[in-house]
């Protein structure tokens, strides 16, 4: 069941655009999040990621992730001032060692950045199902795309088999592992049996590929489930415009801001609005989609 979900991804408004564009969007968001070390921009990214995660991953899963992420943020906030003894506003002092507020805030920001990146990644893997990624990759590097597709098919098969080999060894009493050492060798044996079995079968797979015209032509084509339509072109232009604006704004914001020695004061600024728009884009699309179907249902 969970396997099926990982495979198909979840329906969000995202399906309306080409997977290549979906991939680009997440790549851009991740790069911006990782580069824009500025408290407001980071907070925008973190909140957007969190909201989107609630939306596509469900509140239970998101809360579970948060339980792991919050300690991470706190650890970053604690560890950074221990090593980076920089700043001007002293909080406490242990003899030679002083803890500064600036360095605590820097640690918090670093933690928040890591947390946002992880959240964005987990949202992306919900939206970008494996076959979308492979469709994009297959368009650029057909053979490599095919190899990854083949490996993706084999992994669940191999894990199933690994478990089977283990249970067979368990069920033959006289060969059943007894000591701890036996248990380890029995596990290692699983990998060996699995390897022999799988490689042997791979010969048959090679035959199946040859029988279906592998290498018939130098120009292998790729079946495109997704096409790049005029709408996608429009969407990419719009996205490009937004991304350029946001990058410039983020650059300005970051260059005007510094943590050390004294943290700059943060003020209200119109430049945060386009940035928030970019980060909240999937959520907005999702809400519009929901409303649209709601109205459809009523009509």
């Amino acid at each position: 069941m969970s396997n099926m979900l990982r495979w198909q991804g979840k329906n969000t408004g995202f399906e309306l655009i080409h997977p290549g564009l979906q991939l680009t969007y997440f790549a851009v968001v991740l790069v911006l999040t990782m580069t824009a070390m500025q408290p407001v921009l980071l907070t925008i990214s973190f909140i957007s990621a969190l909201l989107f995660s609630f939306c596509v991953r469900g509140w239970q899963t998101t809360l579970k992730t948060l339980v792991i992420l919050l300690p991470l943020v706190i650890i970053c906030a604690v560890i950074n001032p221990l090593f980076a003894m920089m700043g001007s506003s002293e909080v406490v002092r242990f003899g030679q060692h002083a803890i500064y507020l600036e360095s605590i805030i820097f640690g918090l920001c670093m933690g928040m950045m890591l947390a946002s990146v992880i959240l964005w990644f987990s949202c992306a893997s919900k939206i970008l199902s494996t076959d979308k990624v492979l469709a994009v990759l297959g368009g650029v590097l057909p053979v490599v795309g095919l190899m990854i597709s083949m490996a993706m098919r084999l992994v669940p098969q191999f894990t199933e088999r690994g478990k089977l080999i283990g249970s067979v060894a368990e069920s033959v009493t006289s060969a059943r592992p007894l000591t701890k050492r036996d248990h380890i060798t029995s596990r290692l044996r699983i990998v060996s049996v699995l390897m022999g079995w799988s490689l042997e079968e791979s010969l048959q797979s090679a035959d199946a590929m040859k029988a279906r015209g592998w290498g018939a032509t130098n120009k292998r084509t790729g079946y495109k489930r997704y096409r790049f339509a005029a709408f996608d072109l429009f969407a990419s232009l719009a996205l490009a415009l937004l991304v350029i604006t946001c990058s410039v704004l983020a650059f300005v914001a970051c260059s005007q801001f510094h943590f050390y020695p004294t943290m700059s004061t943060l003020t209200l600024w119109w430049g945060y609005i386009p940035y928030a728009l970019l980060m909240l884009l999937p959520l907005v699309v999702r809400i519009v989609e929901d409303l649209r179907f709601k109205w459809l249902g009523q009509a």
Binding site: T130, D131, L134, P142, L146, S149, M150, M152, R153, Q157, E201, S202, Q204, S205, D207, A208, M209, A211, R212, G213, W214, G215, A216, T217, K219, R220, T221, G222, Y223, K224, R225
Partner: peptide, 30 residues
Amino acid sequence: YVAQNPETQIVCDAVWHELAFGLENLGTSQ
């Protein structure tokens, strides 16, 4: 040519991709 073992004849991870695999090899148009 169809062989005995269904496990080993499947190459790709998605059904649609599997169906298209042979045609991709032949360089068939979209």
